[in-house]
């Protein structure tokens, strides 16, 4: 079915429906305005999602939250900003969320560069949000949360836990320092300099 005949089928349905219901003229107009608004909203979301690949974090990958400390990518010595960037230049940051902090508690990343966070919970539900940015994800025990973003502005940001996780929830936050690209050094280099 081509798009013209599809449109005419839909409009004939709408006509039949409006005659059967005896819809008032003014109401017909409003119904079209309402439908138009919804199509506009849904259309622009679908466009950014399908064409530009803008999606919320939806990385269905399971992990045993009870054994993060025993080894694997979330072992203590593997956390933080990874020395090796990914093939496309994206920096990888690995964090463990647990009562009450995101570990490591302080990280430093460059502005203007793609950052991919991989976060796993070692206990209960948590949520990570850096205010004034779109870095936001739920952290569900049993799953790896993955979110990729770019921070355009350098500055000191708090990474806050935004999901109730227990009596210390208010205190769960960590520091994220976004530096200018020139000031930023890969973690491995820093170690060598010290």
């Amino acid at each position: 079915m081509n798009s013209n005949s599809l449109m005419s089928t839909i409009s004939s349905w709408i006509n039949r429906f409006e005659t059967e219901l005896q819809v008032d003229k003014l109401e017909r107009k409003w119904l079209r305005v309402a439908l138009g608004m919804v199509v506009l909203f849904v259309g622009s979301i679908l466009l950014t999602a399908i064409v530009s690949g803008v999606h919320p974090p939806s990385h269905v990958e399971t992990i045993d939250s009870a054994s993060l400390h025993l080894g694997g990518e979330f072992a203590e010595d593997k956390l933080g900003v990874q020395a090796e960037a990914l093939a496309d230049g994206t920096l990888l940051v690995k964090l463990v969320a647990g009562r009450y902090g995101f570990y490591p508690r302080e990280i430093e990343i460059p502005a203007g560069r793609k950052i991919k966070f991989r976060i796993a919970s070692m206990d209960v539900l948590h949520g990570a949000h850096i205010p004034m940015t779109n870095m936001s994800t739920m952290i569900v025990p049993g799953y790896v949360a993955e979110v990729t973003t770019v921070f355009p502005k350098p500055g000191e940001y708090p990474m806050l836990c935004n999901e109730y996780c227990g009596m210390g929830h208010d205190h769960m936050w960590s520091k994220v320092t976004v530096t200018t690209p020139e000031d930023w050094r890969a973690p491995a280099e820093e170690i060598r300099h010290e």
């Binding site: 939806s58 269905v60 994800t137 739920m138 569900v140 799953y143 790896v144």
Partner: peptide, 9 residues
């Protein structure tokens, strides 16, 4: 669940 990791986009 938009921000949840257990469901696909």
């Amino acid at each position: 669940l938009y921000m949840d990791p257990e469901q696909n986009h």
